[in-house]
Computed example of a mutant assay.
Amino acid sequence: MKNLFVRTLTGIAFIGVIIGSLLTGKYTFGVLFLFIMVIGLREFFNFFNNAEISPNKWLACAIAVLFFITFFLVGSGVLPQISYYCLIPIFLLVFITELYRKKKFPFENMAAGILGLIYIALPLSMISLMVFTADHEYNPSLLFALFALIWTYDSGAYLFGMTFGKNRLFERISPKKSWEGAIGGALSAVVAAWAIAHFFMPSIALYHWIILALITVVSATFGDLTESLFKRQFNLKDSSNFLPGHGGILDRFDSLFFAIPSVVLYSKLFI
């Protein structure tokens, strides 16, 4: 009962902080998600603490911060879009610095550093593409909708899975997930998409919201399974205890890492 109380209290505070930061303005949004990105990277690199692999954590975090700030400033209209291209050579620093570190397993060290940047830093940097319009105005409506779809899917999957779950979705990686839960969660997300289209963002057609809901469901599922794969390899239950009762930042945002690029791509191409 105590664990349930702690989990519920943390969940309410967690949702409140996210909603509050998005409503307050672009700077609180930026500070919060920059913080989330840095903590997420720290958790990811801590996976390797008991391994012989030693990625350059400080360099990766510095590059990640540079990525996030660049995307934020381009979205705000402070920097031109050509600034994105300047980020590409930055990846080379991961390779160059490894020449001077004299660590064992340099290939694995570089691979782990690049993986952390692609898996966590790039998606969370791309989140700025969801909250800034083409005119550089701050509008977090699409990001609100994405969170609503993910939370609805997770809740529906949990309830349907607990009630009807018999057939395992991916037992080798996540034994508790079921096809019944995934289908129930997907239906819940479609209902949420219908509500968003009719009551909150009618400017975007209903069929776009349904497609976005399905994209979110698929990408969130694979994002969740990918993080489960990482934890299984390193024999971990949670990525950390940063959020009491919920685990770490990676445990709470694993769905978002895959959902952000997918939703951004669809919205830029078709909406």
Rank of each mutant, 00 (worst) to 15 (best):
N3G: 09
L4V: 14
L9R: 06
L9D: 03
T10Y: 00
T10R: 10
T10C: 07
G11T: 08
I12P: 04
G16V: 05
V17E: 09
I18V: 10
L22I: 03
L22K: 12
T24L: 15
G25M: 07
Y27I: 04
F29I: 03
F29Q: 04
L32S: 05
I36S: 00
V38K: 02
G40N: 10
L41E: 12
F44C: 14
F45H: 13
F45V: 00
F47H: 11
K57P: 00
L59N: 05
L59H: 12
C61D: 12
C61F: 15
A62W: 15
I63H: 01
I63V: 10
V65E: 03
L66M: 06
F67Q: 01
F71T: 02
F72I: 02
F72G: 00
F72Q: 08
Y85C: 02
C86N: 13
C86S: 14
C86H: 11
P89S: 02
I90Q: 04
I90L: 15
L93E: 01
V94A: 07
T97R: 04
E98H: 13
R101E: 14
K103E: 14
L115G: 01
L115D: 00
G116A: 07
G116Y: 08
G116C: 10
Y119N: 02
I120V: 12
A121H: 04
L122M: 13
S125Q: 10
M126F: 04
M126N: 03
S128V: 00
S128Q: 02
V131Y: 04
E137S: 13
L142H: 05
L142T: 11
L143Q: 00
F144N: 09
F147V: 09
A148F: 13
D154T: 11
G156K: 06
A157I: 08
Y158R: 04
Y158L: 13
L159G: 03
G161R: 11
M162P: 07
T163W: 15
F164T: 02
R168K: 15
E171I: 02
I173V: 10
K177R: 05
K177P: 08
S178P: 15
G184N: 10
G184A: 07
G185L: 05
A189R: 11
A189E: 12
A193Q: 04
I196R: 12
A197L: 05
H198F: 03
F199V: 03
M201V: 09
M201S: 10
P202K: 05
A205T: 01
L206T: 05
W209H: 10
L212A: 08
L212F: 11
A213F: 15
I215S: 08
V217M: 11
V218S: 06
V218L: 14
F230I: 07
R232V: 01
F234I: 09
F234M: 02
L236Y: 06
H246M: 07
H246D: 03
G247S: 04
D254C: 10
S255W: 06
A259K: 09
I260P: 04
S262Q: 03
V263N: 02
L269K: 04
L269W: 04
